[in-house]
Simulated assay, not measured.
Amino acid sequence: MTDMLITARHALPLLAVAQAQKELTHNEALTLIDALVHSAVEAGPINDPPSDPAPGQCWLVGDNATGGWHDHAKAIALWTVGGWRFAAPRAGMIVTRLTDRARLRFDDGAWVEPRPIAVPSGGSTIDAEARSALAKLILHLAAQGLLISG
């Protein structure tokens, strides 16, 4: 399959002129699109594939991948009825991790988690209204997966 035509961004398979069994190429592209559009992953990055995945579930592959994920470090792994499919991440990709609702971004070759921000405390002058407003802001940003409150 080294001669297969692919898209520039996500390496989705393209149909070729006079290609036999075009439905296979088309279905493979739709499977990858299904995993990448509004991407949500079960968990990750993790190194070991889950033992009992359901079709359509995705994970972020860790740096030291094992088993069926070997040689797919940092990829998005999608389980299908036909086995594992992988999509290489691109800079700026964002996924929602379902275990904690965090939104991870792929940047500088790694999946970056939101940084925790502590609730305001301390200081010599305490402004209860300001602290309350900041605490609500942090809560809402955390609920959107933009940061993790600490």
Rank of each mutant, 00 (worst) to 15 (best):
A65N: 02
A77D: 00
A40H: 07
V41H: 07
L60E: 10
P53Q: 08
A87C: 14
G44L: 06
I46S: 08
I46A: 09
P53A: 12
H38C: 11
D63I: 15
R90Y: 11
T66G: 10
G62T: 05
S39T: 15
A91H: 09
P45G: 12
I94V: 14
A40V: 06
R90D: 09
G67I: 08
P50R: 06
G92M: 12
A40Y: 06
A40S: 11
N47S: 13
W84C: 03
G83Q: 03
A43T: 09
P55H: 03
G62F: 04
D71S: 10
G83S: 00
W84A: 06
R90N: 14
A40I: 05
Q57G: 11
R85D: 00
I46E: 11
P50S: 10
P55Q: 09
R90S: 14
A65K: 02
P49Y: 04
N64A: 14
A65Q: 01
P45H: 09
N64Q: 14
E42G: 00
G82M: 05
I46N: 03
A77Y: 01
T80D: 04
W59H: 08
P55W: 00
S39H: 13
D63M: 13
A91Y: 08
A88V: 13
I46P: 01
V61T: 12
L60F: 13
A65G: 05
Q57T: 13
A43F: 06
D71P: 01
W59Q: 02
